[in-house]
């Protein structure tokens, strides 16, 4: 099936099998290997990318559903040579070790901060009618879909907290 894929603002007219996941298309067809395959079942979050600004586990998304939607991967987060504030924050706080989960953590946190800025409450937001406050509890709750086996969570919370405030 023919799909017009827009990734990091580059247009890719491609032909894909209807069963192909966005993750496989990115990695195998477009040579964008930043998004990682940790489980291929939506359990680990290493494949998280942004679709129209919303975070999506690309291993659970079929490429044929992505026609004309804007996809952002970790490769597209920086503004030219200027890293995204979250990328800089992850380095400053050493919020990774092996780094395999990091592309997913970064895309997820970009999406999460956008959700937060839009006023979306989470299950730990005390007053769902008021603007939420980005405390550690909110960060933990909203980032709990991204596993980090190296256990860099303490520093991930710090990095996101700094970038989000």
């Amino acid at each position: 099936m023919d799909v017009q894929l827009s990734v990091n603002q580059d247009q890719h007219p491609i032909t894909v099998d209807t069963r192909e996941t966005l993750l496989d298309t990115l990695r195998e067809q477009l040579d964008l290997t930043g998004a990682k395959k940790g489980c291929d079942h939506g359990q680990c979050g290493a494949c998280t990318v942004l679709v129209d600004g919303r975070r999506v586990k690309s291993c659970l998304a079929l490429t044929v559903t992505m026609d004309d939607r804007e996809i952002t991967t970790v490769e597209g987060l920086a503004d030219g040579d200027t890293p995204h504030p979250l990328q800089a924050g992850f380095i400053e706080h050493d919020a990774f070790q092996c780094g395999y989960c990091t592309p997913g953590q970064l895309c997820s946190s970009v999406g999460m901060l956008a959700e937060f800025a839009a006023g979306w409450p989470s299950v730990v937001t005390p007053d769902v009618s008021a603007a939420p406050h980005l405390d550690e509890g909110e960060i933990r709750e909203r980032m709990s879909g991204n596993l980090c086996r190296c256990g860099a969570y303490v520093n991930i919370v710090a990095a996101i907290g700094q970038a989000g405030r």
Binding site: G34, V74, E75, Q87, I91, F96, G99, T102
Partner: peptide, 15 residues
């Protein structure tokens, strides 16, 4: 290797 790891350029064995 920090910059490569946050930009997605770091080449893991599976890449």
């Amino acid at each position: 290797d920090g910059t490569l790891k946050v930009t997605g350029e770091f080449a893991y064995a599976s890449d």
